[in-house]
Structures are given as C-alpha cells and as structure tokens.
C-alpha cells in the first residue's frame, strides 16, 4: 500500500514511460524572496504523475501544496530543479491548464454561460473560431457541460443570482470547457457546507471519469482526498517535502456510503496521523 518516494533519482532518458508522465518534478525547490528574508516554500521535491491520474495533495497549512500547483501551472518558477509538464520543461507559456480555486471568481458582468465560455476566448484552437461559434457550437458545448453538473437552465443567469455551491459547479465547468489535459484544483470546495461538498465530489468524480484529465487537487479534507483521488501525497510542514505517497484503490464510481466503511476510515486515520506528526514536528522544530 505504501511506498517511499524515490529521492534524488536522476532524470530518466526519453522512454515510453516518460511520455506517459503528465507531470514530473525532479529535485524541485522553491524559495520566495532572497537573502535574509528568503522563505523556503518547497524543498527538493520529486514527484511523478502519470497521465490521467487523480492526485490529492494533503498536509498541514502553509506546507507548499499550493506552491506545487503554481509550479505546475507555470505561475511560479522553480528555484532549483526542474518541472516537466506534458513532456516539456515548464516555460512562461503554460499549456492551457484548467484551474479552479476556493473563490469561484466568476466575472459579475457576464452571465454564467459567458463566464464558462471565457477560456474558449483565450485558448487555441478555440480562440480563432470564437467569433463564428460563440452562438453556435461553443454555446452547445457550454450548455452540455452545465447540464452535466446540474446547472441547465442557469446559463443566462448572472453570478449573483446563484448560490455558492452553484457558482463552484460553474467554476468547475469553466476549468474544463477547453478540454484541458490537466486540471489544477486548489481547495475548490473549502467554503461549502458538508452536503453541498459531497454532492460536488460526486459531480467531480463523474466529470473526471468522463473526460479523464490529469488532476492535482489540494485539499484539507481527508475524506475528500480519499473519495476522489487515485493517489494521495502527504506533505510535511514548511518547507514542504512529500512524506508519503499512497495509491487509493477503492473501486469507482465511489459512493458517499463507502467513506464510512472500515477500509476507508483506516486510510483516513493513517493520513490523519501522518499530518498530526508533521505538524508536531514543525512545532518542536520552531520551539
């Protein structure tokens, strides 16, 4: 069940396995600022995510989980080491990655339909066809995706007319509309109530099973990680390292009832202990 992550392994030469890797972090560290005020956020992390996998990152607050997301999306450059996404070293130009945050950031002057359509206006090959198809094919595409998350009939509404849970569904649609190979989610359901959250887990699972993007999910909710992920990485306190990396092998589609079964509870328990240890190691270190 558990295996230690290989540290300091030299980058492999081009091989079939390499091509199937969506994300590869090798000996990557990130430090914000410089000199005396330098803050190490991530220390020499090595991580490999095969194409189409659903990885959850859990760990104590401020451990660098979000930094990994920002590395993969190209928003942050590594201080040392390399980040390879889709077989290429990540450059300033990112590869049409879908992102969603806890804050749904819908633009208030656009309808839900227009909000979800926004990535098509920016990402090629949709961009060059946007004018011709925004009232045709693209519109159908948006409506189709909205229907999948239970938002049909809300396309023409404005963001302030929707509840937090509905906005977060629209947010997922916006992150997926341009069929990204990679989806980065930073605590997307953190601000929702328990029942809405469970509902959205099921929706996200369905979307993932249907489109199969590679997903990197940052979360504080261990049940969420266990329910959704095919692999869970536990990180240490800042500066973050990966402490534990385990596959989650429950059959899909998973149900909420499954999260109360003994195996699932045991997994939860083990993850919890790892994080509690990581937290207390940090407290002892700083004392």
């Amino acid at each position: 069940m558990k295996f230690a992550i290989v540290k300091g392994a030299p980058p492999e030469p081009a091989s079939p396995t390499r091509a199937a890797l969506a994300v590869e972090l090798s000996q990557t560290s990130v430090t914000f600022g410089s000199g005396a005020s330098a803050v190490p956020a991530l220390s020499e992390t090595t991580m490999r995510i095969p194409d189409g996998e659903f990885v959850a990152l859990v760990g104590p607050s401020g451990c660098g989980k979000s930094t990994i997301l920002r590395l993969v999306s190209g928003l942050v450059q590594p201080s040392t080491g390399a980040v390879i996404v889709g077989g290429r070293e990540i450059a300033a130009k990112a590869l049409r990655i879908g992102m969603a945050f806890q804050n749904p950031t819908m633009l208030p002057w656009l309808t839900i339909e227009q909000n979800v359509m926004l990535p098509l206006k920016i990402v090629e090959p949709f961009r060059s066809r946007f004018r011709q198809e925004k009232r045709g094919g693209f519109r159908d595409k948006v409506h189709g995706l909205l229907a999948q998350v239970g938002l049909s009939g809300f396309a023409g509404k404005y963001p302030w007319q929707l509840s937090g849970g509905m906005l977060q569904r629209a947010n997922l649609c916006r992150a997926l509309i341009h069929e990204p190979r990679m989806l980065l989610l930073d605590e997307p359901f953190g601000a929702l109530d328990q029942f809405t959250r469970e509902e959205l887990w099921a929706i996200l699972q369905e979307l993932w099973l249907a489109h199969r993007p590679t997903v990197l999910l940052v979360t504080h909710d261990l049940r969420e990680a266990g329910f959704l992920a095919s692999r869970i990485c536990v990180m240490s306190a800042r500066p973050g390292r990966i402490l534990d990396d385990s596959p989650v092998e429950f059959a899909r589609p998973r149900s909420i009832a499954m999260t109360f079964e003994p195996d699932f509870v045991a997994l939860n328990q083990r993850l919890r202990e790892l994080i509690v240890d990581a937290r207390s190691a940090q407290t002892a270190g700083s004392a």
């Binding site: 590869l95 992102m99 926004l118 920016i122 990402v123 992150a175």
Partner: peptide
C-alpha cells in the same frame, strides 16, 4: 492566475 494558466 486562472487566465495565466490558460496562457493568456
């Protein structure tokens, strides 16, 4: 961030 990740 969402837009930059899209390559905007």
């Amino acid at each position: 961030d969402v837009l930059k990740a899209l390559g905007a």
